[in-house]
Design a protein around this nucleic acid. Structure first.
Length: 693
DNA sequence: CTTAGGG
DNA sequence: CCCTAAG
């Protein structure tokens, strides 16, 4: 039976977009994991924020553009505009900077040219350039985005495409559904590039800016791509490890997963959001609330990636595109802000990226208890990840890989229009930004409170500390205005007070707050820092562990408790789960005698009747629950099936292990067949058991 | 509360 | 061991 089951879910390796909904029992967790790891890249959030602020003004104009696009008609005007922008950008960072912007610009330029006289090569070069740029500057996510952008451009100009098909096709998702592949390749490249990049870390602020800038732009600009990218990204991230990240949410919310609910249309929307900001991911999660309760439940589990996949391939909706355009402009400004923030830190931050990762579990829990109706808390603080570098001079150099934007919780009625949804998101972001952001510096898990200390005094000058150096974006005074949906009342409430937050921290929800630092793959250096959040939020032991896996460990995630809270939106009724820091039970290895008793009981009763086993053999052992017995049996079976050299812990007599195998084989066999009655027919205990096969 | 499984 | 999903 066991075997059978395994086979059944053996599909594990690939991502299944649909799975989420399925019964959990299925245990496709394995597959999920993968997905999880891919975190979506919401990275952009930070950038978004900046844009948002300015956004309002431009939005109008951008909208106009969008409209055009959506119409499907390519308007020269628009094109022109884009091109111009791109070129401008390009000029800025032509050289080394090779920032995304440049890439884009080049892409645009390329398009232009193509229109005129397309040359395949040309496009090629462009393509390459783009990648390079991306990789160098940004995180993989970005680069992906960039790629997308290019794609967009291409599609628009069909002519161009036709002329130089080879290149274009590869790039653009629109053409083929196989975006993923394409992306992957790109990603890798990027990663490599990143690695290089890191080595050179001495970027100046200006550079940083430029780098970021592009990214942001990119995202917004080409919505379509974004959607795709989001998907892709996640996958890439897997490689990263952690991933817990977060990726999935967005999609989920959108509903794609839900699938059926496409009505939502959501895919697109979600993607958009992502494009905007890193938060989006989170936001998506929130969104899932929007979905029916069932979805919502599901949603949390879904990974961003998953979604995206399904969505990703799909063609982008015109709307999305529109949106993106809009944001594009906005974004430009955003970067500046970020930059400033960086400066603040006084260190030289080379680049800030946003990352989005989210924690997934906690939210779920919270939800569970709360029930659908309630809103979720979301916010999170930004996390900064940095790679430390050694500094020769007395300068401390490091890069911040990403900042996480606090999560936004958004609730909108199903009947709300996409436009209103966008607006809502924008408003939420704007509210946060308007409140101002503060940068928190976390060293080895502790927040540095004294701003007047020198880095030297703080220890930030030591490379080992740099590994655990983290930054947080904290909403300033922030009042987060509630996002509203036209109808729904329940939206989020602005931030709660810190205290509340803290309190809540104890609850599962809090956990959600914490992020995983998963992102990065490109590990220039690997550093572990577990330190991170623990300090801050007490609760979530698990997360940290999880992260360990990933290389990116470097990234620190520190959330200031406060922040999180601040952003948090709605509270639910949480179960009284407060803060129990649930401790893990102390480990109590089974003694040989216990194993013996267990084996004997299982031989008679069969595996699967743990309660009876418990009663029969461990009645008095309060610390041994039937689950423990079941687990022990599981491990015994495993232990018995591996080479003695690989066994650890107190050695279990081979004789017992043999019995374990025999009993296991016996009961496995029976269960699959007789199913029910064997109880009466205990395994022929004596050694005879020989695998009753 | 039990089972069954994945983490 | 923990956590969950499902019965």
């Amino acid at each position: 039976m066991v075997l059978k089951k395994r086979l059944e879910y053996g599909f594990g390796g690939y991502r299944l977009p649909v799975i989420p909904r399925g019964p959990r029992s299925v245990r496709r967790r394995g597959s999920q994991k993968v997905e999880d790891s891919r975190i979506c890249a919401f990275e952009l959030l930070a950038a978004v924020a900046g844009k948002l602020l300015q956004e309002s003004e431009r939005s109008d104009s951008s909208n106009a553009v969008e409209g055009k696009v959506s119409s499907g008609i390519h308007s020269d005007e628009i094109k022109q505009k884009q091109l111009e922008e791109g070129e401008a950008l390009r000029s800025e960072c032509l050289d080394q900077g090779s920032c995304v912007e440049s890439a884009i610009a080049s892409g645009l330029a390329a398009q232009k040219r193509n229109l005129k006289s397309t040359s395949r090569e040309f496009s090629h070069s462009i393509y390459d350039n783009v990648f390079e740029c991306n990789s160098i500057t940004f995180r993989s996510d970005f680069s992906k985005k960039v790629g997308h952008d290019l794609k967009l451009g291409v599609p628009d100009n069909k002519k161009a495409v036709d002329k130089s098909p080879s290149k274009v096709e590869a790039v653009s998702p629109n053409y083929g559904e196989s975006c993923d592949d394409y992306i992957d390749g790109g990603t890798e490249r990027r990663l490599e590039a990143e690695g290089n990049h890191n080595r050179n870390v001495d970027l100046t602020v200006d550079n940083t800016y430029s780098l970021k800038y592009p990214t942001e732009i990119r995202v917004d600009t080409f919505p379509l791509i974004n959607s795709d990218s989001s998907v892709q990204l996640p996958s890439h991230r897997d490689s990263v490890p952690n991933a817990s990240f977060p990726r999935h949410r967005n999609n989920v919310k959108v509903g794609s997963r839900d699938d059926g609910e496409n009505s939502f249309g959501c895919n697109r929307p979600s993607s958009k959001i992502k494009a905007f900001s890193p938060q989006p991911c989170l936001g998506h999660r929130r969104r899932r609330k929007l979905l029916t309760s069932k979805y919502w439940k599901v949603a949390p589990k879904l990974k961003d990636c998953e979604f995206s996949n399904s969505d990703g391939c799909m063609k982008p909706i015109s709307h999305c595109r529109k949106t993106f355009y809009t944001s594009e402009r906005i974004q430009r400004e955003g970067p500046f802000k970020k930059r400033k923030l960086c400066y603040h830190s006084s260190t030289t931050a080379h680049d800030l990226e946003e990352s989005s990762e989210s924690i997934s579990n906690s939210p779920e829990k919270g939800v569970k208890g709360d029930k659908p109706g309630s809103a979720r808390v979301v916010s999170s603080s930004v996390v900064g990840r940095q790679a430390s570098f050694q500094s020769r001079d007395s300068h401390v150099k490091f890069s911040i890989r990403s900042f996480k934007v606090p999560e936004l919780y958004i609730e909108v009625p199903e009947t709300a229009t996409v436009c209103s949804l966008k607006r809502t998101v924008m408003e939420a972001m704007t509210a946060i930004l308007e409140g101002g952001l503060h940068i928190g510096v976390i060293v080895q898990g502790k927040k540095v409170k004294d701003d007047n200390k020198t880095l030297l005094q703080t220890g930030i000058s030591h490379s080992d500390v740099l590994d655990t150096l983290g930054f947080t974006l904290e909403p300033g005074s922030a009042i987060v205005s509630p996002l509203l949906s036209p109808k729904d009342p329940p939206i989020l409430p602005p931030c709660e007070t810190h205290q509340q937050l803290n309190r809540s921290a104890a609850s599962p929800i809090l956990d959600s707050v914490v992020f995983n630092a998963t992102f990065e793959t490109s590990p220039v250096t690997n550093m572990n820092h577990d330190v991170e959040r623990k300090h801050e939020l007490v609760p979530s032991p698990t997360e940290v562990q999880t992260e360990g896996t990933s290389v990116d460990s470097r990234a620190l995630v520190a959330l200031p408790e406060v922040h999180v809270e601040a952003l948090a939106v709605v509270p639910m009724n949480q179960k009284t789960k407060q803060p129990e820091l649930v401790q893990r039970r102390t480990r109590r290895p089974f003694s040989v005698s216990e194993v013996e008793a267990l084996v004997e009981a299982v031989e008679k009763l069969g595996a699967g009747r743990w309660r009876d086993v418990k009663l029969r053999a461990f009645e008095d052992a309060d610390h041994r629950t039937y689950v423990d017995l079941k687990d022990k049996w599981k491990t015994l079976v495993h232990t018995a099936s591996i080479a003695p050299q690989q066994r650890r812990g107190e050695p279990v007599p081979q004789e017992l292990l043999d019995r374990v195998l025999s009993a296991h084989a016996y009961w496995s066999h029976h269960q699959s067949k007789l199913h029910g009655k064997h109880q009466a027919v205990p395994l022929p205990i004596s050694e005879a058991q020989v695998e009753t096969a």
